[in-house]
Computed example of a mutant assay.
Amino acid sequence: MSTAETVRSSDRDQALRAIVEATSAAIADDPDKAHARFGATGAGGDGLRTEIRIGGHTVLVDEPPALGGDGAAPNPVENALAGLLSCQVVTYRFWAAKLGIPLDGVRIDVEGDLDVRGFFGLDSAVRPGFAEVRLRVTLDGPAARERYRELAAAVDQHCPVLDLFRNATPVSTRLVTGEAG
């Protein structure tokens, strides 16, 4: 790593530690400040495309041609894997800063196995979601291997999207329909 990259990494780590400390102090004073709500809204477009608004961002989701889409964007399960991957990267960065573990780089590869018989209702014994998801995490930095194991354990314990994959989350659906003609 170059001197400039080391300075940027150190500045980033200090900024992340400051966020952790400020958040911890704010929550200590008022635990209600710990609650955050996230949301997205979307609508179907051409074919199987979905245009999603998340804050000030627009995200396109599509299916590959083999599943009836145009392949114009990642499909929903690829986006789920991308959400897990990106949340892991963020959690590694925050926890490395919090634990004082130097982390020069983090690379994550993720893959999941899905049997489409569940989605298409062809076999009721097959779940529609992933049967298994695998992460391969590569960490670069000067710390001892044991420190990176400590970091990985902290990430596994605190990554919000990993928690979604590992644990059932209550989901409620409210169906709204147009007026009956």
Score class of each variant (00 low, 15 high):
residue 175 L to P: 06
residue 85 L to H: 09
residue 172 S to I: 00
residue 166 R to Y: 11
residue 162 L to E: 13
residue 148 Y to N: 02
residue 170 P to V: 02
residue 104 D to I: 03
residue 48 L to A: 02
residue 126 V to C: 01
residue 15 A to W: 08
residue 68 G to H: 13
residue 101 I to R: 12
residue 120 F to I: 15
residue 76 P to H: 13
residue 108 I to N: 09
residue 66 A to W: 00
residue 55 G to Y: 02
residue 159 C to I: 04
residue 24 S to A: 14
residue 25 A to N: 07
residue 130 F to L: 04
residue 33 K to G: 05
residue 22 A to V: 00
residue 120 F to N: 04
residue 174 R to H: 08
residue 92 Y to E: 13
residue 61 V to R: 11
residue 138 T to G: 03
residue 19 I to D: 06
residue 21 E to V: 11
residue 18 A to G: 03
residue 1 M to A: 05
residue 49 R to H: 03
residue 114 L to C: 10
residue 148 Y to H: 05
residue 176 V to C: 01
residue 140 D to A: 12
residue 117 R to I: 10
residue 121 G to L: 10
residue 94 F to M: 13
residue 58 T to C: 01
residue 165 F to W: 05
residue 44 G to F: 02
residue 76 P to D: 12
residue 147 R to S: 03
residue 133 V to S: 04
residue 77 V to E: 13
residue 32 D to N: 02
residue 76 P to C: 15
residue 161 V to E: 01
residue 47 G to L: 04
residue 151 L to K: 03
residue 27 I to S: 01
residue 135 L to R: 12
residue 89 V to K: 09
residue 124 S to R: 07
residue 108 I to P: 02
residue 133 V to Q: 01
residue 155 V to C: 05
residue 5 E to S: 10
residue 86 S to A: 15
residue 45 G to I: 01
residue 16 L to S: 06
residue 97 A to L: 06
residue 130 F to R: 00
residue 118 G to L: 10
residue 107 R to C: 06
residue 118 G to S: 07
residue 69 G to I: 12
residue 24 S to H: 04
residue 115 D to N: 14
residue 143 A to Q: 05
residue 2 S to C: 05
residue 150 E to P: 05
residue 155 V to M: 12
residue 88 Q to L: 14
residue 40 A to D: 01
residue 136 R to N: 13
residue 74 P to T: 14
residue 160 P to F: 01
residue 181 G to R: 13
residue 151 L to Y: 01
residue 55 G to L: 13
residue 13 D to A: 15
residue 81 L to V: 08
residue 77 V to Y: 15
residue 92 Y to I: 06
residue 127 R to G: 10
residue 83 G to T: 05
residue 28 A to Q: 07
residue 22 A to C: 01
residue 158 H to W: 07
residue 10 S to T: 11
residue 96 A to S: 15
residue 75 N to E: 14
residue 166 R to V: 07
residue 162 L to P: 00
residue 109 D to I: 14
residue 123 D to E: 12
residue 155 V to F: 09
residue 66 A to E: 15
residue 29 D to F: 00
residue 9 S to H: 00
residue 87 C to A: 07
residue 21 E to K: 04
residue 16 L to E: 14
residue 136 R to Y: 09
residue 114 L to G: 09
residue 137 V to L: 11
residue 61 V to Y: 06
residue 49 R to E: 07
residue 67 L to A: 15
residue 161 V to T: 09
residue 70 D to T: 15
residue 155 V to W: 10
residue 111 E to L: 07
residue 48 L to V: 01
residue 79 N to G: 04
residue 101 I to Y: 12
residue 110 V to P: 10
residue 159 C to F: 04
residue 36 A to M: 01
residue 68 G to M: 07
residue 2 S to P: 00
residue 135 L to F: 09
residue 43 A to F: 01
residue 86 S to P: 08
residue 9 S to Q: 13
residue 149 R to V: 02
residue 3 T to N: 07
residue 2 S to D: 10
residue 144 A to L: 06
residue 99 L to N: 10
residue 168 A to T: 10
